[in-house]
Simulated scan of single mutants.
Amino acid sequence: MSESLEHWTEAQLRTLSTDEYDFQEFKASPYLGTPQGIAQNFRERMSKQISAFANGSGGRIFIGITDEAKIDGGVPVNLRGGGMRAWLEDVLPKLVTPPLRSCNIYEICSDASEDSLILPGHAIYIIDIKESSSAPHQALDLRYYLRIAGKSRPMSHVHIQDVLRRTRTAQLTCHRFSTYGKIEIDKSDSRGPVAAVGFRFHISNQSTVMAQHVGVELSIPRDLLPKKLRQQILNNSEIAYTQQPGRMLFFRYHHHPIFPGQELYVLMVYIGIHKSNLSYLKTGAAINWKIYADDAQPAEGSINPLAYSQVQQAIQIIEQHSYKNPQKNTPTK
């Protein structure tokens, strides 16, 4: 789906693709109404469209645009007292069960140019529907719909099951992975100075479902984690530690539910930068993360430490020290 726009213009409407996709539907103005009033079966037909978009990945319905993506003059803006936009905002979310939590309506009037295709006192209406975490939504005819091959079609039993699984589990993700504290220099390591950089891992619940059981896992390359820093991480008694070839895994179970929209800090880790791992760090060493939430599929991703300015500063510190104190060769006897 294309990027959401908060402000639409007639010029943008003229650039719309002539194709209808799973995320885009064109309806001519009489679909909504004529100067004589609201179309008799508008609610029933619109209910199917809203059900289909909300049960799928969301999308936009353009009213006042023909199947050929041409502006047809628009819908009269005064068909209802208080204006058509306000009326649509009140009516459309209630055309499905359960009602939509949100539905954005855009009203595009003439740009007043000589070649404007929107008639005076008329407007094009865009109904912007997001993928719904309350799906599946039932239409007024007591059926469920989905966008399939550019059309709103009745859902099969398999489709309904898929949507139910999608919306009954919490969706957690990495909200922020950021450096924390100052760079600490440890000069007691046998390999030379080690510059330690701390990171805090924050997660958030982006769904409308509360997460009851949550665990987070960070996988750090062994070469970036000297023994002292590993022990510093494990000073938190809630963190469990395992090893895999070339990597160290730190896991923490979060003991409290995470509510919809909630963001919180869950784990602190460190990496150590020294002259022996500089080349490895510069070739793309990654910290991998994984979040487990109830029965949902784990969310996972990776982070490149080089993207952080504090890591770059630590590299410079180690490089400068190595330049000032080059390793001396021991003379042979």
Rank of each mutant, 00 (worst) to 15 (best):
D186P: 07
L146H: 04
V158W: 11
T173L: 11
L172D: 02
P154A: 04
I160G: 04
H157D: 09
C174F: 08
R191H: 12
H159M: 09
A195W: 01
A195N: 01
A195Y: 00
R165I: 10
F177N: 06
R153I: 08
R166V: 06
H157M: 12
K151S: 12
L172A: 03
P154F: 02
K187G: 09
I183A: 00
R153V: 13
I148A: 14
R165E: 11
R153G: 04
Q171R: 10
S188F: 03
T167I: 05
G192E: 02
S156N: 01
Y180I: 09
R165V: 07
I160L: 15
H159S: 12
G192S: 04
V163L: 13
V163G: 15
D186F: 09
L164V: 04
L164K: 00
P193W: 00
A149I: 00
V163E: 03
E184I: 12
H175L: 07
Y145P: 12
A170P: 08
G150K: 03
S178M: 11
R176F: 11
I183V: 15
S152L: 02
H175P: 02
L164I: 08
R176K: 09
Y145M: 04
R191K: 05
M155A: 14
I160S: 03
G192M: 04
H157F: 14
H159V: 01
P154V: 05
R165H: 09
R153L: 15
I148P: 02
K182V: 15
D162P: 04
T169H: 07
T179Q: 06
E184G: 07
S156G: 12
R168K: 08
A196R: 07
R165Y: 10
